[in-house]
């Protein structure tokens, strides 16, 4: 595979990805409210099962960034997106990545949906918390490859005006199907469902104080807003 920039595949043991109870509860719609004992038990059980069955895997690729208007050239793919162009302005490079919590966890969620709606719902929430936490850890590790630089928050197909169709060339460039088993349905949904693909910009310096993710987002009525 020499001649291509190398795609890195990472497998992380579940013990290194901690799923917090507040995160799981947030995805269960609790916001900041206190759960009762039964719901807390449901959430804890879901977290435990997710940890037992998750197989955290990711593949990543460092690429150069060249922006011209709203045309963004990422070396292995090119997209037209004003939002992404804005998001990556000042970045000379980026890291493309795809990450997943794996197929076994997906099967367990499917099994739960047959036996208990509450359990299925809790597993889904724990799965969301898990993949987001995994992505946070990954982005932190990417920063280690670029000392002295700042990593921008991750930006996925579907954000802003970055078309969902970008998923195909993005996952293709990462060889995600072969490396970590992530494929796309015809409607561009990733399978396993608890998977994320994104572009992480590498900036020379931070552009002012970055507000936390939710504060910067326009979806004010989102049920999962922090």
């Amino acid at each position: 595979m020499s001649g291509y920039p190398p795609i890195k595949t990472v497998l992380l043991p579940a013990s290194e990805v901690e799923i917090s109870l507040p995160d799981a509860l947030r995805y269960m719609g609790f916001g900041g409210a206190e759960p009762g004992a039964e719901v807390a038990a449901l959430a804890r059980e879901a977290i435990a099962l997710t940890q037992k069955t998750a197989r955290y895997a990711a593949c990543s690729l460092a690429v150069p960034v060249a922006i011209s208007g709203d045309e963004v050239d990422l070396g292995v793919l090119r997209v037209k997106s004003a939002s992404l162009a804005r998001h990556l302005s000042g970045c000379g490079a980026a890291v493309l990545f795809a990450a997943t919590t794996g197929m076994e966890a997906e099967r367990r969620r499917k099994q739960a949906s047959v036996t208990s709606g509450a359990r299925a719902f809790a597993l889904d929430a724990a799965g969301s918390a898990a993949i987001e936490r995994f992505c946070d850890l990954l982005c932190r590790s990417f920063a280690g490859d670029f000392p002295g630089k700042t990593m921008r928050p991750r930006f996925s197909p579907g954000y802003g005006d970055l078309p969902l169709e970008t998923q195909r060339p993005l996952l293709g460039a990462l060889d995600a199907a072969r490396r970590i088993g992530v494929t796309l349905t015809d409607a561009l949904m990733m399978m396993p469902q608890k998977s994320v693909s994104a572009v992480v910009g590498v900036a020379d310096r931070d552009c002012a104080q970055q507000a936390p993710a939710c504060a910067r987002c326009n979806q004010k009525d989102c049920a999962f807003r922090r």
Partner: peptide, 11 residues
């Protein structure tokens, strides 16, 4: 009441 409680009650 939140969704998980509603679901458990439904079950």
């Amino acid at each position: 009441v939140f969704l998980p409680q509603l679901l458990m009650s439904a079950e």
